[in-house]
Amino acid sequence: MNTQTSFNVCGESLLTPMHICGFFDSKEQQYEVIVPYILEGLQANDKVINILEGNRHGEHCRCLAENGISIAEKLATGQLEVLASENTYIKDGKFAAARMYQMLEQNLLAASRAGYESVRACGDMVWALKNLPGTDELLEYEASLNLLTPKHAVSLICMYDINSFSSNTLSDILLTHPYVIKDGKISKNTKYVEPSSLISNFSDFSSSPLKF
């Protein structure tokens, strides 16, 4: 495991590595949580990666800029990356758990080589509502991240709109995250299941490239 680093979210001081599901009922509530988290990371010289729909990038960058972040400077140095779901999660119009896992792992390794002691990442999971090919691998992917994060000084926040996802899906998502943000507060998730137990239940896992 890499050296633990501290970070704050929802007013709580925590240590990496950490994989968090953020349940939000509005964009306003989402930004109340992630803006301080991102701002602190940039001030601490962490690598910061944001992934969201391409058509939200302008709004996202304006929101960060309004909170005192020099977007142009951070983007130019590469400390801040704002990536599109269409080029990451659903590249070529489909989701592949193994491909996304490998892409994230490569980004984490690149950040370490660039001298960053810690990485903060948050991804908006709304792409999963498009029902594109491979979306059924979402839970496999989320479970697998709990095998990736202990290898890095990283905090990941997977952001879910509770008004858009079904209650059954949100219940399943809870199984794959050790910590949860709800109503603007973060807590240890009592419903979390270890990845080895979850992954063994995926019927097609034996033929998947995601093997650990």
Rank of each mutant, 00 (worst) to 15 (best):
1 M>E: 13
6 S>I: 00
26 S>H: 14
26 S>C: 13
28 E>P: 00
29 Q>C: 06
31 Y>E: 13
33 V>P: 02
35 V>R: 00
37 Y>K: 04
45 N>F: 13
52 L>W: 01
53 E>Y: 06
54 G>Q: 14
55 N>E: 14
61 C>L: 14
62 R>A: 06
62 R>D: 06
64 L>F: 10
66 E>P: 06
67 N>W: 08
69 I>V: 13
71 I>G: 01
74 K>M: 07
74 K>S: 04
79 Q>S: 07
83 L>M: 08
86 E>Y: 10
86 E>H: 11
89 Y>H: 14
90 I>L: 14
95 F>G: 03
98 A>E: 12
98 A>N: 12
102 Q>D: 13
104 L>Y: 06
108 L>H: 07
109 L>E: 11
115 G>S: 08
117 E>D: 15
120 R>M: 05
121 A>M: 11
122 C>A: 12
125 M>V: 05
128 A>N: 09
129 L>S: 04
132 L>E: 06
132 L>C: 08
133 P>V: 12
134 G>V: 09
136 D>M: 12
148 L>D: 06
151 K>P: 00
153 A>Q: 00
154 V>E: 01
155 S>G: 05
157 I>T: 03
158 C>W: 03
160 Y>C: 04
164 S>F: 12
165 F>Q: 01
165 F>H: 01
170 L>T: 04
182 K>P: 02
186 I>P: 00
191 K>R: 12
192 Y>A: 09
193 V>N: 02
197 S>R: 14
202 F>W: 13
203 S>D: 13
204 D>K: 14
205 F>E: 07
208 S>N: 11
208 S>Q: 06
210 L>P: 02
